[in-house]
Design a protein around this nucleic acid. Sequence first.
DNA 1: CATTAGCACTTCAACTCATCGAGTGCTAAA
DNA 2: TTTAGCACTCGATGAGTTGAAGTGCTAATG
Lengths: 335, 335
Amino acid sequence: MDLRKEQILKAIIKEYIFGAEPVSSKTIVNRYGLNVSSATIRNEMAALESLGYIKQPHISSGRIPASSGYRYYVDFLMDDDNIADEFNIIDIDTSNIKNINNYLKEVAIVLAGLSNYTVIITEEKQGEDKIHHLKLVGLLEDKALLVLVLSSQKVKDYVLSFLEKISEEDLKKLTDILNYYLIDKNIEGITPELKQEIINIFPSSPLLVEEIFKIVLKALNEEIKVDIIVEGVKNIFKLPEFSEVKKIESFINTLEDQGQLTKIFNNILGQEKGKIDIKIGDEIGLEELNDFTVIATNCSFCDGVQGKIGIIGPTRMFYEKNITLLESLFKQKEE
Amino acid sequence: MDLRKEQILKAIIKEYIFGAEPVSSKTIVNRYGLNVSSATIRNEMAALESLGYIKQPHISSGRIPASSGYRYYVDFLMDDDNIADEFNIIDIDTSNIKNINNYLKEVAIVLAGLSNYTVIITEEKQGEDKIHHLKLVGLLEDKALLVLVLSSQKVKDYVLSFLEKISEEDLKKLTDILNYYLIDKNIEGITPELKQEIINIFPSSPLLVEEIFKIVLKALNEEIKVDIIVEGVKNIFKLPEFSEVKKIESFINTLEDQGQLTKIFNNILGQEKGKIDIKIGDEIGLEELNDFTVIATNCSFCDGVQGKIGIIGPTRMFYEKNITLLESLFKQKEE
DNA sequence: CATTAGCACTTCAACTCATCGAGTGCTAAA
DNA sequence: TTTAGCACTCGATGAGTTGAAGTGCTAATG
């Protein structure tokens, strides 16, 4: 890869990202004038093709970048600083921040709008969660709130309804008993035997204890489920290279399949924070997404919730812009 | 509309629902043998067409139902009881029921799978919500939970962090003060003057009071937002009549637009419960959905949360099956 | 008078064929 | 090493043809 080859590869990629059409030798001479003729460019293009960086849709067409061409571009050729600042401002109403679900959805919508691609956000499973402590709070006559604080700092609450009225003192007493037995227990520690023991100690409302155990199990179980938000699917229709129903169908099927979605991120990031990870085409590891690129990063949201954010677009995406977008989001969180 | 015309209309609609292709006079003679010739059917078809119930895509093709044809079918011709019971069983893990968001998503996924169409669920704005009462619950040293119970029975909670430690007694005291002043206030009742008054009465933590007011305003504000769940978008790809990218794009754009989605339901149901409402084609009132039918019902989910569920599919949808599906869901909720 | 057999007519979909333009690879010359 | 020039390839476009499906209408029928 001498300098001229790199210049030509960069030119092809920039042209193709912009126009989504095979790039001809003539176009490069006209727009990127390297002081050589189109024939020379053609020779170099043939060389770039045998190196695997570009390819021809058919024998008499111009060249389009191959996955490894994009990879080379991202690793060595990309301009870092050519993005106007106005693109980078992610303006999310931070008064929303108290409600994690709305907040993440808002982030996804804004990011999808700015990037013009599809945004996936997952709220991550934190490994095994334990009960940090819990509390029963009387609400109405026949209702109480069970508040669970998990070791991951997550706070969850569930409304309990009971048939007979239960006094504040009893709720307090039950809270104390439950805390004594349940603190630091993980999902495997919540056994039927333990439940029986507590019912024996607090025999006045066995049904309530049953209910609470059910909920606690559920809550710990939920932590294993990954919550996923997808926004901006419609942006795929703006891309000329996905004008076939088959391709759109495949994309949307993948995005509606939670299993596939988690795979996208599994194949990507480690736990390292702040790093932007870029997977191009088959690097994603899902056949259905071979024509896509995912730019993703780990991100800690409010209240210590861990998650991953990814922008998924065509391999010919505006790399600089979207990397900057994710970086700015991350910086915002750091402040 | 004599009997024979009705029979022919019904035949055309059933055929078209099944096959998505224009129905010819010959097909009707072959499959629905009414002991007349195809010429007679043709005469009747011409009559049905001038009544507006069916139409021809072009002059030499068979007939397809028009919106008013479907309407006539739904109102007068539909078989009520030809659906095998196995279709009607909606099996949702009701242990999920404690968590409204997951539960509704689960309902949507199951219903989308059973119907093979797209399902929209909205959790409804309840008109103006008021504070029923609130409670501050100490959690950790520097954290407390603000639990809001709204007049709509909704329970919301928010984690508060404060700089200095606050004693349980102070939390209790502040809870009492807040309840005294905030109970039965709607969003307009939460004024800066009121906040100042409370800060004067409870001067030890003005920042905390500020924070609480901010959250209370947010919470009441959120109730104006409608939460929307959409599942089964991918099912549109199974429908041959939506094989054009343009149509799919229009559909998905509509579904990603919260404003449009709420319009769908606005134009539909009143407050009547248990009634199934069917809007066919332009009855929906959105140009983009002229080729769709929405079958919808009001539904009260757990804990008094009000919502609407709609199945949206092509005008040639399996009406009986989907009506039964929604009915069975509603019955399940009643139990 | 309702029904129907028969036929002319219309339209769509699929196929072929020719043409054109864009772009390449290769050769030979500079 | 570069380049001018040319033959070649391929896809896209549009025109023309054909066949199948289905209708509407007319005239005959019971």
